[in-house]
Nucleic acid binder design. Structure first.
Lengths: 239, 239
DNA sequence: CGGAAGATTGAGAGTTCTCAATGCCTGTGG
DNA sequence: CCACAGGCATTGAGAACTCTCAATCTTCCG
């Protein structure tokens, strides 16, 4: 599985930043031998921690989130296989947010020193920089989503984005894919109430564009869904 | 002015990432000799452009923004002196958003090649990486702001953030600072209507925490304002 | 079978938007 | 120096969207 994700997911993403020499690929594969499992709900990293490892998602979903003084919770990013949890490690003093496992997860730990080593490899440094820029683009897209769309568009856009990202790492086919977020979690990600998420999902179902059951989504009319979401995948910089 | 901003603003930020050797500072200063002026409203970079320069804000305010198919506009970041406009240049194919001048601006252009050179300097590479991580933290804070606060808190938080950032680069004192955004632009940044921004500003004024006239804000009760905003400056990673 | 978590639904309350109308300030031209 | 146009800011009233607070239903699991 690890080998699979490194070759099909993470490396695929790195390659998007340019060609990666074969020896760099080997180096990366060797570094990720320390893989840990986390159960759903458990925090991978907690706000205030000073992690000395960089974490790479291998399996499962996780999320960045923050808790506000009034108890509100906001999810600021969803992490799927191939995503880095904390590019911060080597530079910022401490985590300004937490990362929690949405489902059971497998995460590869790479030591701080190993990352510093890796950064000396031009191709890898470029790839990590590229990944960071894509993360920024996704954050901007979320801001646009929360600011300029109402619930129907928000939910549709989230579904479109996760579908595109999952498909890119080989975890979704054209029509259906795993989507393990509860309605409560979708609400926390979009800044709306779980009750309203429920009504919105019903509206999307009744519009005939998608259906969700258990932890799985089936998109029945992708063009319509993308229309509702005003979804343009360009910001993901995939291909 | 250029020398001033380089020493007091940008370099101050870079130093936050660690000590910067004196020769690196000189190198940076020399690189920023090509400074251009842009009038308010003009785009510095337009979506779809493939810029071959990195731009550093020297004077004035600018904003990243996106226009949606339905005509809506969302500002995803505010740029003040010392901020980079486009760390993207060397890696991503094209801009996925535009950057517009809010006020008259002065911007330093650094060539792509010069940046690549700079990245070979460990201290500078680290500093640029650090700046990018802080940008991400600000984006996450905006997501939290848009998702979990209502208008009063949103506006208060934006004011607190800009005050902290301006103060860090020496452009604000404890009580007052320039704030050139129109109510329309504040609305575009926060995902609310300019009409509602107006009512919200009035509420803050009537609460006695701040006043805004022309392009200037005077905060009369910072603790109260930060309380309303639930503002915790930690995410800016200043100091 | 019982319990717990998540999903679903209804009804009323609250926030924000829309659409206009009006007021204020500034720069321009006579 | 004044009139006037244009861009913001301000205000009101009703509509639309989303939230809150329960209550009920389903599903999953021990």
């Amino acid at each position: 599985m690890l080998t699979w994700i490194m070759t099909h997911s993470f490396l695929t993403k790195l390659r998007s930043a340019g060609d990666l020499p074969r020896e760099d690929e080997d180096l990366l594969l060797k570094l990720c031998e320390d893989v840990r499992s986390f159960p759903a709900q458990r925090d991978l990293i907690h706000e205030g921690d000073r992690p000395d490892h960089v974490r790479l998602m291998i399996e499962g979903w996780a999320c960045r989130y923050q808790i506000l003084p009034d108890g509100g919770r906001q999810i600021t990013a969803l992490l799927i296989p191939g995503d880095f949890c904390d590019s911060h490690v080597t530079l910022l003093a401490s985590m300004d947010h937490s990362i929690g496992a949405v489902t059971d997860c497998k995460v590869a730990l790479v030591s701080r020193d190993a990352i510093v080593q890796l950064m000396h490899r031009p191709a890898i440094a470029r790839a990590l920089w590229w990944a960071s820029l894509v993360d920024q683009a996704v954050l901007r897209a979320w801001i646009v989503n929360m600011g300029r769309r109402q619930s129907l568009g928000k939910v549709a856009h989230l579904i479109c984005e996760m579908h595109a990202r999952l498909q890119f790492v080989g975890l979704a086919d054209a029509g259906a894919f795993d989507f393990p977020l509860s309605q409560e979690q979708v609400g926390d990600a979009l800044g709306i109430t779980s009750v309203h998420v429920n009504r919105t999902l019903r509206a999307l179902r009744e519009a005939g564009v998608m259906a969700k059951s258990k932890g799985r989504i089936a998109v029945t009319d992708m063009p319509a869904l993308r229309g509702i979401a005003q979804f343009d995948p360009g910001y993901l910089h995939l291909e």
